[in-house]
């Protein structure tokens, strides 16, 4: 208060403060501030995560530009896009990418549809709802590995449950996973069995967050139940659908565990090879590290192309 400068005092709105504040005071304030004091809380986990995720991605990218294979160390002196060119020209890569796409779209859309159907089924005033929901969701608690074993047995060409039904109906026994033309559909079916409960839970939460008077208003207006759901309720589940779809797609991208566990080998059933299995096989079975890294980078780009619009959408919704 002591140093009072008239010109400063009159310049009131934007004028500098009259108090002489030393840099020491400011530094002490800064060091005491919430920003500084809270930074270790997020900083330590962030660094750990950052090294693992982004360090890993960066290193993987670097390796993908080399020709690193076999035993030894990667040689970073001669970088090129060679591995990407090889991959894009390779028939098995293209096939894996195509099958990956089919798996992604097929699995996600079927799971969403079934999940929505189950959610509506359970939303409409039934008894033992909690118990039924728990059972529908039960497969989610299993690992990919266990699901794979269960469905391997369900699909077994010998005495598997599906073939018990099929032969009971008078058809010949089918080798579900052995036939390359239906193996991918069989895999998608098994994954839908495991994850449609997840979509159901998300939709149920969305349904329950809607005010119930909408439903009542529609009833008063004389709309049938089916019509109410289709015209009024379901369109409002957009946010839930987007969220569920993104998470389901990521499950699909991680389907490696399932495919590996079916055969217990790097090579999944014929017709079900996807980028994830191809990448692991190239890198860890054949030691083609650089080639595997290149495939992994493309898999990452595929994931990012799914997530980026989702994040933008979330940001626009103010949900971040």
């Amino acid at each position: 208060m002591a140093t009072h400068d008239t010109t400063e005092a009159t310049d009131s709105t934007t004028g500098p403060s009259k108090e002489v504040v030393t840099w020491k005071t400011k530094l002490r304030y800064f060091l005491n501030s919430d920003f500084v004091r809270s930074s270790p809380y997020w900083g330590i986990p962030f660094v750990l995560m950052g090294i693992a995720v982004y360090g890993g991605i960066g290193y993987n990218l670097a390796i993908s530009f080399t020709d690193y294979a076999g035993i030894g160390r990667p040689e970073f002196s001669n970088l090129s896009l060679e591995m990407y060119r090889t991959a894009l020209a390779d028939g098995s890569f293209r096939q894996a990418a195509f099958q990956n796409f089919v798996l992604l779209v097929g699995f996600t859309s079927v799971s969403l549809a079934l999940g929505l159907f189950l959610a509506v089924l359970l939303d409409y005033g039934i008894r033992y709802k909690e118990t039924i929901q728990t059972i529908y969701l039960l497969p989610m608690a299993l690992s990919f590995v266990v699901t794979a074993q269960v469905w391997l047995w369900m699909y077994s060409p010998g005495n598997g449950v599906l073939n018990v039904f099929v032969t009971a109906l008078g058809f010949g026994s089918i080798d579900w996973l052995g036939n390359p033309r239906i193996a991918l559909a069989a895999v998608i079916f098994a994954l839908v069995w495991q994850f449609s409960g997840y979509a159901m839970v998300v939709f149920l939460a969305g349904l329950q967050s809607l005010p119930s008077d909408q439903f009542e208003a529609a009833k008063v207006d004389g709309a049938s139940t089916a019509k109410t759901y289709i015209r009024i309720i379901i369109p409002q589940l957009k946010q839930a659908s987007v969220g569920a779809a993104v998470v389901l797609m990521l499950f699909a991208l991680k389907a490696f565990d399932f495919l590996y566990a079916i055969t217990g080998d790097y090579r999944p059933p014929n017709g079900t090879d996807i980028l994830a299995t191809l990448m692991v096989r190239e890198a860890f079975q054949y030691g083609q590290w650089a080639y595997g890294a290149a495939i992994a980078t493309m898999l990452l780009l595929l994931s990012l192309s799914v997530i980026a619009p989702y994040l933008v959408y979330q940001y626009r919704q103010g949900a971040l």
């Binding site: 709105t13 403060s17 009259k18 108090e19 400011k26 304030y29 005491n32």
Partner: peptide, 18 residues
């Protein structure tokens, strides 16, 4: 901008705790 005093002491650079 501006200054804030409580009991004659300058408060701008003091966290709520103090």
């Amino acid at each position: 901008a501006g200054d804030l005093y409580i009991a004659g002491e300058h408060m701008n650079y003091r966290v709520p705790q103090n």
